[in-house]
Design a protein around this nucleic acid. Structure first.
Lengths: 343, 343
DNA sequence: CCGTTAATTGTAACCGATTACATAAATATT
DNA sequence: AATATTTATGTAATCGGTTACAATTAACGG
């Protein structure tokens, strides 16, 4: 069960009676090596099953062609879509991905950053954990000049590059849409506004209300963990509000769906009694009845853009140091759950 | 913008006026080094911001503490859940993950295998692409004695270890359940039976039919790509069948849901006219109305089990060479879509 | 045919850790 | 105090590439 001995450039060199330097150059397709020698070397390499040793190379080159990715959780539709986008770009460019999840814990996130750091990733793509308060754990990376790009859940720092959508505007559009459908009392279901995404969505929501002179009071704000189950709990709260809302803007589709189902159970008609707008364009939004109006959040593109920018920076094609924020387009997708005025 | 110089054990040794050997040992917490010296070294390391160079270490040790993962696609609920399970175990054990997706293409899968191989992963976890016919591209790994564990989409090889559920039995249970609910003409929506998962599910379905003396003809078999959209297309086919089925077993929830929605649109009542059973226990199964009866597929556990077994093998705790197959428990989750006999 | 330049190839010093073996220091034994 | 043990540290080879610089060979012009 002994591992077969690895073939090295020394073996190739010995067999061909040439120097390892020539072999090394040939394998990198260095034009300085004559075609005949190259041919010989390539053929022998193939024949002997040679494979280059990345560690020896990285040790010398001090780069790893590896990108680290840290996300709050892997098993959400949105995140897995982003990662698919990242993988696509990275793979095409010959970069490897090492991935870890923080499970929404700042502590685990710090550990992951340290691990990535020790693994000498060339750069890092990060979506912050829910309870990450400060981002000092990234300072070691800055000191070593390792680029970090945040996406979706970003930090309000000045020194880093962020890829995200305009959450404020999207939330504003979502809320405005409800208003235009005739809603007068619009509630908002979201998570504790600690992270940018929730803060911004809340702001956009409030801005729309203010603009159309609709009142806002705190009992219109329902804070939860945005899970589907939590949406059902939110439904109970909604029903308990004296002046029942006639429209709800939810910060994610999962929770919106949970809430809708529970309300329907309670005999509420959607959208007639309460209209809904969600966020993310998750697959469930097309399954629930009526289909959920939502904000299309381009996860795959976000992954591609983040990875592309990081790699361009690493390869020197374009630098991100001057880029502070990249905003992706998002748009309202109108479906049945909000269409009070059916035409 | 020059990268700060890395601190090495040489720097530490020089500063403390001791040898690099002692430093190296101390950092690995080798008991042979005295506590005092260790303390000094740890403190200085901390102070100077030393981090070990994995490449130098790997170069020496010939192991990478890295596991490769190749999946057909990252952005599916099931796969991302499996990966979350893998990540959890790997991370706890100090292993890194490098992940790539084959996008259901055998060609891309081969490339990924090669990349993983060149990156010297210690082991590989693979779920095969849809159109992978033979698995000769894994032979290089076997030759170098790199363990490979397949999960979910496995190969019918004898030499490899597979982690999966008993698809045949699960499909049998699903179909039997429909029969017990009074269904007489049961259709099956699935993908081309090339991969084990679809072959086995088809067999289980047929076995149940046979056992209860129900007929099977090819027009009860609807082949598609199992997407939600494809489910809608399947609905059209269903409606076109002269003797319309009164029960449908679908090989995944997404497609089942697409089909259900389209049939409801066409005025079919579920489960009264047609009962449904899906597969996977995807979140959408709890959103569609009526809720979809399905097979609970323990993705997270599957990821954990696969990773745990691979790592145990790598660390020598337990070997997988004798293990051919690990079956995980799956079970039927009965919900409204199949309950014709409401009690 | 010889000197000069261009095209190839070789030599050897890294990159930063690990570890077998040798050596020195501290402690125990007689 | 001298010797045997144990404990702690050091020396140097090794892992497999990369690359600056030196050396060799081939091609060219006169």
């Amino acid at each position: 069960m002994e591992k077969e001995k690895e073939v090295t450039i020394y073996d190739l060199a010995r067999k061909l009676n040439i120097s390892i330097a020539t072999v090394s150059r040939a394998l990198k397709d260095d034009p300085v090596v004559s075609k005949k020698t190259k041919k010989k070397i390539f053929e022998l390499a193939e024949e002997m099953g040679y494979r280059s040793n990345h560690f020896a190379r990285n040790l010398r080159n001090k780069r790893t062609d590896t990108i680290g990715v840290i996300v709050p959780r892997l098993n959400s539709y949105f995140m897995s879509t982003v990662i698919a986008g990242i993988e696509n770009v990275a793979n095409n460019e010959g970069f490897n991905l090492i991935i870890s999840q923080s499970s929404e814990s700042a502590q685990k996130e710090m550990n992951s950053v340290k691990t990535m750091f020790n693994n000498r990733v060339d750069g890092l793509l990060v979506s912050l954990a829910y309870d990450t308060e400060d981002i000092t754990h990234f300072e070691t990376l800055y000191r070593k000049n390792i680029p970090v790009i945040f996406f979706d859940r970003v930090a309000e720092q000045d020194m880093c590059t962020n890829v995200l959508i305009d959450n404020r505007r999207a939330a504003y559009e979502a809320t405005k849409h409800l208003i235009q459908q005739g809603c007068k009392r619009i509630a908002h279901i979201t998570a504790t506004p600690k992270r940018n995404v929730y803060i911004d969505r809340l702001e956009g929501y409030k801005r729309a209300l203010a603009e159309f002179d609709l009142p806002f009071s705190n009992d219109q704000l329902i804070i939860g963990n945005l899970s589907q189950e939590d949406g059902a709990l939110a439904a109970a709260q909604i029903l308990a509000i004296p002046e029942r809302p006639d429209g709800i803007f939810v910060a994610n589709d999962n929770s919106a769906v949970g809430c809708m189902l529970a309300l329907k159970q309670a005999g509420i008609r959607i959208p007639e009694d309460i209209a809904f707008v969600g966020f993310n364009n998750d697959p469930v939004s097309k399954v629930v009845e009526p289909n959920l109006t939502t904000i299309n959040y381009p996860g795959y593109e976000m992954g591609e853009v983040a990875a592309r920018n990081l790699i361009n920076h690493l390869t020197g094609i374009a630098t991100i140091t001057s880029t502070n924020t990249i905003l992706l387009r998002s748009e309202l997708v109108v479906r049945g759950s909000s269409l009070k005025n059916k035409t």
